[in-house]
Amino acid sequence: MTEATPQADITLFLASSVHDMKNSLGLLGGMVEKLVAELPPHSGADRADYAHMLYELKRINDNLMHLLTVYKLGNALYPFDPVPTLIADLYADLAVQNRVLFSTRQLALQIDVSADLTGYFDVDLIAGVIGHALVNAANYTRDTVRLSARELGGALELRVEDNGRGYPPAMLLDSRAGLTGVDFFSGSTGLGLYFAHEVARLHRNREHIGSLRLENGGTFGGGCFVLTLP
């Protein structure tokens, strides 16, 4: 019988490495945005490259954050903290965070929300979910993405809509089943959707539970990412 060599518990390093990587990504992202700002106008090809870099950086950052949060949620370590929040503020922040990505890709971002619509949710989690959906939409849309929100039957409905070709049927099915596995063909790990589902379910008001659905159609007839919070 061979004795197992003691192995370090990887979770011990998870949080600290993620911090470290996020710091690096933050600096990197800042540099790229600076470079974009210094680009002469009409430098099409360079602009597209930088846009791609930004897109990938955002994806890495989102994934890291999702990984860490899923780990913390699983161990009941996440400080879940629903607070009253203006949706207009949430969307304004997301627009700022993704401004360079949208402008370099020459995509329009429409925001449709009344100035005093308030919701109760964990801002960081919801910003993570909607932000990820926004980056995805930017990748699959034709030229426009729309963020909207409204109160519907006492619940809050947050929508991310695009005018692309919509979600593939398999994803719509998976979304309804609430489970997504790793999809090696599309390059999607399913982490983003899993994260979104978990975050939705964390939000409760008495017997009502938050939910997520994907659909095609909506304002532009493209993909719709719809988060409902009680």
């Binding site: 949080a15 993620v18 996020k22 710091n23 954050m65 996440y78 400080p79």
Partner: peptide, 8 residues
């Protein structure tokens, strides 16, 4: 870098 319990 991330949300902490100490916040709340």
């Amino acid at each position: 870098a991330e949300k902490s319990s100490d916040w709340i």
